[in-house]
Amino acid sequence: MIRTRFTELVGVEHPIVQGGMQWVGRAELVAAVANAGALGFITALTQPTPEDLTKEIVRCRSLTDKPFGVNLTILPSIKPPPYAEYRQAIIESGIKIVETAGNKPQEHVTEFKKHGIVVVHKCTSVRHALSAERMGVDAISIDGFECAGHPGEDDTPGLILIPVAADKVKIPMIASGGFGDGRGLVAALALGAEGINMGTRFMCTKESPIHQLVKERIVANDERETELIFRTMRNTSRVAKNAISTKVVAMEKEGAKFEDVRELVAGARGKMVYASGDADEGIWSAGQVQGLIHDIPSCAELVSRIMRDAEAIIQSRLEGMMSGAQRVAAE
């Protein structure tokens, strides 16, 4: 059993988190993660309206009696969704854990804290983590450059970012980007984190609500099968490498602006990838951790395996190394 400040904070058995993922963070996956003893997040903006989010929370509660949360990502948009209404739906539903991400979340943090909600803020740099800490969030999820989705513009990999953040952030912190097995969990703990956040790895589980062909594509891919789009627009996003992403990268090299690629990267097309199984239908997020994904287990099997392997590494390999060093010193 591995207990950390984070597991104590959110009341879960294992220091493993399934973060918010657009079109993926639905009740069936979140409940399976919760039932496995980890922490799952429903993705608020996957639901078309705040009313639909309320229904999804009710559906998740019908599938588990364990703790779970809701992700609310705040991004710049020409026509932003009604964030305050989604926030109110979360509060009125009695959710006790929220993951925020994106733009400065002070307004939402302040309101959530009034209702005793634990807030975990996802960020990609130490300066943003410290800013969120000052805003009053309860924990940080720090995203290394390896992650799927938006890794920020600093290009700092987890091996550096996690310990640098751990040296400065006082509240509990979980590590995101590149995690998929027990080795990663032990490494994150050694670097100063209190747990790990996994996205792509949880996409590739039996309960994940995406097409089987996409899961099989993730298994077949290796760590090189991602691309960074929107680099020239300073809004970098790591996505699975496919015909569309390659075209977008090529267009950016020729000076394309967002308006020129808007149709190619439309969210509706990405949603169709998960529904149809056609991996070249649109842009979809995946991290470099694909190189560590070799099967499609249930969430219970995955969490159990990660914890079993992590405990074995700590108890056998690391303690064995220490014992061996002590024997050599004695001799």
Rank of each mutant, 00 (worst) to 15 (best):
E146G: 07
M1D: 13
M233P: 08
E133I: 01
V12E: 06
A256K: 04
E263F: 02
C204F: 11
D167C: 13
G180I: 06
L72K: 09
H115Y: 14
I162Y: 09
R59I: 02
A32D: 02
F145Q: 07
S285L: 14
F145L: 07
M135G: 04
P15I: 01
L53R: 07
V273S: 01
A220H: 13
Q315Y: 01
V248T: 10
A101W: 03
K170V: 06
G255D: 11
I74W: 09
H115Q: 09
T110R: 14
S276C: 00
Q47G: 01
T226D: 05
D143L: 13
L75I: 15
S323P: 00
E311S: 12
G320A: 12
D295E: 15
E85V: 00
V265Q: 10
A279T: 08
A286C: 04
L292V: 09
R231G: 00
P82G: 03
A256V: 08
L228Q: 10
R5V: 00
Y83M: 07
N242L: 13
S245Y: 08
D167A: 15
S298P: 03
D155G: 00
E28P: 01
E28Q: 15
T46R: 07
L39F: 09
A266D: 15
E146Y: 07
V249F: 13
A330N: 13
E223S: 15
F6N: 02
E227R: 15
L130P: 05
A32P: 04
I306Q: 02
I78P: 00
D280H: 08
E311T: 13
L318T: 01
K113N: 05
L213Y: 11
V120Q: 08
T232Y: 12
M321C: 14
D143F: 00
S304E: 15
A44T: 00
V126S: 05
I229N: 03
E331V: 13
A329W: 15
I162W: 12
I90E: 12
T200I: 03
E56I: 02
L292H: 11
A132V: 02
A132Y: 09
I160D: 04
L191F: 10
K241E: 12
R224T: 14
M21K: 08
V239R: 10
R308L: 11
G144Q: 09
A268N: 07
